[in-house]
Design a protein around this nucleic acid. Structure first.
Lengths: 116, 116
DNA sequence: CGGAATCCAAAGGGATACTG
DNA sequence: CAGTATCCCTTTGGATTCCG
């Protein structure tokens, strides 16, 4: 099951900062500092770590300009861009149903707290 | 960002056993013991915990038949069924591109191990 | 049979300091 | 500017045991 493609992809997409990162890079290539600014809540460690993971999967490419100081740009690969439509479908679905999920959670939590 | 619908849904879908569980329940209602059998690798704790999470989100419903011994059936709710199409789209995408991902990972790992 | 509780190991993730 | 390396706390998940 660790090799089930669906699970592998969802596992990556479920990483804390991946959805935001893909959203940013979906708009076009960005510098590391731009991404750091966009993902204000992410630690520098997690930003790099997440980018490495996406790079390893082939979703993101990394360009280093060896100036001083160094400049690093990230962009979606063709594979990464082909992922965008399904992400978009997920986003649309989530936005359309989030209120229903909220309602379900509140209802569930109410019952839990009333009968322990 | 913790309230971003996309992230919330992906976070749940990224849970270790969720994709398998939804796949099983997508085929129709199942007993707890059936699910336990299908998800052979999951501990009993994780199975129940995952089902509780999906129930709280409103994706899954739980029916208890108070016989002796007790019988518990799980099924997708209407909301859960509306989730199936996007899951299916993800599955399709993942199966179509998993080889490309594998290739990217192998290429990446080769470069890592050759220049540490 | 289904589940709750406990205990414990491993992975995730943040803060900080240091390097080229 | 971008990245690496620690340190440390939190979360996740598995094994086991006990309850209806």
């Amino acid at each position: 099951m660790a090799r089930c493609p669906t699970h592998r992809v969802l596992d990556r997409l479920g990483d804390k900062w991946v959805s935001l990162l893909l959203k940013e890079l979906g708009e076009g290539p960005k510098r590391h500092s731009d991404l750091a600014h966009a993902l204000a809540g992410a630690s520098q460690k997690m930003l790099t770590q997440t980018l490495r993971g996406l790079e390893r999967d082939g979703f993101v490419s990394r360009f280093v300009t060896p100036s001083v100081p160094v400049r690093v740009d990230y962009a979606l690969t063709p594979l990464g861009e082909r992922l965008l439509p399904v992400i978009h479908a997920m986003t649309l679905w989530a936005e359309r149903h989030i209120e229903e999920i909220d309602a379900a959670q509140q209802a569930y939590d109410l019952l839990e707290n009333s009968a322990p």
